[in-house]
Nucleic acid binder design. Structure first.
Length: 218
DNA sequence: ACCGGGATGTTCT
DNA sequence: GAACATCCCGGTG
């Protein structure tokens, strides 16, 4: 792929969105060594990467880190169970869990094999497959309602428990995290994590400041 | 804009 | 039996 979306616009007159729609998985896969580091390092660096599945997805604008030890907010806190097994597996895989009786949420597993740390993907700025995502999320009134929450983006991309354990580097199941050359923000927004009763004091949420697709303001 | 409650079922105490 | 890394809808300013 040697034509950037921007050049495509110059040559064809199409919009960036149309160009991205035409190139389903634009960008290069992140090497597995990217994920092998601490989720505290990986989380802010995932900002502005792309999460895509078969031509639908967007730019990651909000993430949270969940640690392997000493983090009572983390699913790995009380050790390995059937649900969190993938989180304890090798890095670069997708850990998907079911919550509140009806919602799926997706994480990128970090750290070393057996460690149990991951980054929750909380919001995307939609870039491609907009119509498909709208069909998958009839409750969304505007584009900014499509992926502005961890369960919303899973619904928009069709991510369910069947995708637990997908390899984000190899792209099994069509799910990938890609780098299209856009760097993370030099000064990302930062706050405490959302929706936790335990471990709520740690500032382990990062976001692209001012992005309209955040799950919450600031 | 902001707030409150209901939906819905798996997981762990 | 309680908690839950949430979302949606319908109320009120």
């Amino acid at each position: 792929m040697d034509t950037s979306p921007e050049l495509d616009v110059l040559f064809t007159g199409r919009t960036v969105r149309a160009a991205l729609d035409a190139v389903a998985d634009y960008g290069r896969p992140l090497p597995r060594c990217f994920y092998r580091r601490s989720s505290l390092e990986v989380a802010p660096e995932l900002l502005n990467k792309l999460l895509v599945r078969d031509g639908r997805g967007g730019r990651i604008v909000e993430v949270e880190a969940y640690l392997a030890t000493g983090d009572p907010g983390s699913h790995s806190y009380r050790g390995r169970t059937g649900r969190n097994a993938v989180m304890f597996g090798p890095p670069g895989h997708l850990y998907v869990y079911f919550t509140y009786g009806m919602h799926w949420c997706a994480n990128a597993v970090c750290g070393a094999d057996g460690e149990g740390t991951a980054v929750l993907i909380r919001a995307l700025a939609p870039t491609q497959g907009i119509e498909t995502m709208r069909a998958a999320r009839p409750a969304a009134r505007r584009d900014r309602d499509l992926c502005s929450g961890p369960a919303k983006l899973c619904q928009a991309l069709g991510i369910t428990g069947d995708d637990d354990g997908r390899d984000l580097v190899a792209g099994t199941g069509g799910i990938r995290i890609l780098d299209d050359g856009t760097p993370p923000p030099a000064t990302p927004g930062r706050s405490v994590r959302i929706g936790l009763s335990a471990g709520a004091e740690h500032p382990w949420r990062w976001f692209v400041p001012g992005d309209p697709n955040l799950s919450r303001r600031g």
